[in-house]
Design a protein around this nucleic acid. Sequence first.
DNA 1: TAAAATTTTTAACATTTGTTAAAATTATTC
DNA 2: GAATAATTTTAACAAATGTTAAAAATTTTA
Lengths: 203, 203
Amino acid sequence: MGWGNFTFRKMGEKVVISLADCFQGYHFLNPTSIDRLEQISEKLICKRNSVLIRQDKIQKDIYFLASGLARVYYETADRQITLDFVSPGGTLISMNSYVHDTPGYENIDLLEDSIVYKIDQKQLFSLYESDIAIANWGRKMAELEFIKAEQRTMSKLFNTAQERYAELLEKYPQYIQRIKLGYIASYLGVSQVTLSRIRANIP
Amino acid sequence: MGWGNFTFRKMGEKVVISLADCFQGYHFLNPTSIDRLEQISEKLICKRNSVLIRQDKIQKDIYFLASGLARVYYETADRQITLDFVSPGGTLISMNSYVHDTPGYENIDLLEDSIVYKIDQKQLFSLYESDIAIANWGRKMAELEFIKAEQRTMSKLFNTAQERYAELLEKYPQYIQRIKLGYIASYLGVSQVTLSRIRANIP
DNA sequence: TAAAATTTTTAACATTTGTTAAAATTATTC
DNA sequence: GAATAATTTTAACAAATGTTAAAAATTTTA
């Protein structure tokens, strides 16, 4: 859900969102609980093209994207399908891995130089058991991520690739130029050739 | 996820799952907390074709399906797309409505005579604030529903309509005959004509 | 049980989209 | 900045699926 109602600043041209704002994006949290979450977080400075999550590896931890851009995708032997692009303030998570401690479905790469905060799953789970505010915050996180995923599904089911491309252009005007067309095409659910036809404006 | 590891009985030919087992399907719960949840639940006996949830109405409550079969679908002016079929032990919820108290996306109808348990959202939310076990159970519910939705998305992205039809036949052998082909076709993401061709075995 | 209504299959055709491959453009590297 | 590599566009064709409409089959109703 991008940078909705966050208090953010610019550094050069880069949007940077604080970790506390990433947390509060899901649900109000009292300062004590924020502090507990911050204590199990680690700040990482990552280069463009860094790999955060691989589908064949267990990746239980959660990442919050403070700045930059990420791509989430599924992969099989013969195909790669982009599920989502995530902008600052968003969360990078392989839900299946996070919940079940087994390899999940998603791969997540960073498309730009980025700042991410990594939260240790084991310590987070133990906070869930002891701090009811954090337990409810974690519930909200799952609920809101569900709704976001549902909105993506709805959009894919009911909107044309052309309409969804226009949406993307509006949502990520500053990034879209630097994202490979193949990634965008698989996000839209069409071949790269079809996306080229869309861009060439053959209605 | 159907009737995985539940202790169920048959009544005539009907699978019936207890409310406590519906709860425990998500996460272990202690007897006290189960009791608290049961106290805010209401049992409903519903006829085939009953409407549980409408996308234009606020439907904050959650339903657990003890027996019968439900269909979840999205609808626009010109199209109706089936998202999921839910069998006993499953949960019927419009997540957006449940979380945001506004009309959600899904319509949910019962395709068979069914028994459902309705949980009052307001009372559930107040249990979330006072009972940390229930808060974590609610978190698990959202997380696992997310994963189920993700699996459906994966299946739709990577499997052919033919493969998915075979999966359906395997998962709901006893129901599939009574479900309209139009519903199944829209679940598979193809036209009804194409589904007829699949059934006629034109490979 | 016959008639009506609903659902499913089949047919014919048009359209869209994918595939492969080559040309054009843009970006990267030395 | 020239040469190389990577990416994007265009073209030509084939194949799959949607659309419309009618026929067949099944279910419901009177």
